[in-house]
Amino acid sequence: MIRIGDVLVSQGEGGVYSERMLAGARVWDPFRSKLAALYYTGNGVELTADMRVLYLGAANGTTVSHVADYVEVVYAVEFAPRPMQDLLEVARRRKNLVPIMADASRPEQYAPLVEEVDLLYQDVAQPDQAAILARNCAFLRQGGHAILMLKTRSVDIRKTPEEVFHDTIAELAAAGLEVMESVWLSPYHKDHAAIVCIKPGRK
């Protein structure tokens, strides 16, 4: 990851969401992006130039644009029409971004479009987040990483965030993933956690 001093940045064309520029690079704000927050609070997964990424829950393309600055290609899946309009606009200017309008919980809809990927990133804020991730692991190569952004308040409001956190980790392990790292994203995002997993097996 590229850092200027302590500030996380990415190299690319700026002005996507009027982000701050620093020495010609785009500042990646941890308060706006959960993935950036992960790089501040934990280790995350090093993004490299040869990586293929499947990004579920791309929304308005804010975080996606930074990921696209680092990697070879991003398949960005988003379901709602309103954010999709913004995502398309971002994708028009970033040639390594493939925008896909589909429901992340139904991978059979976009399976004919997506290659095998090195990183599976999911930020969908649904009650069955872990199950959605497990279903999408079909696209992930053996030894590839999966990052789950867990919005504990969307999973079950009656449980404490800690309970949801532990339940989700257990659920991911049961789905055959190896949990590498799990961190809370405070102080950047409240009641949000990031869970980094690896799909076992050799490349």
């Binding site: 029409p81 309009q85 398309l88 994708a91 040639k95 971004l97 493939v98 925008p99 309008m101 479009l113």
Partner: peptide
Amino acid sequence: YFSALRELCFAAAEQDIREQY
């Protein structure tokens, strides 16, 4: 490969958005 795939994905998404609206 990517330019063909992207062209298709854009067309499909735009179709989808138009239908939903």
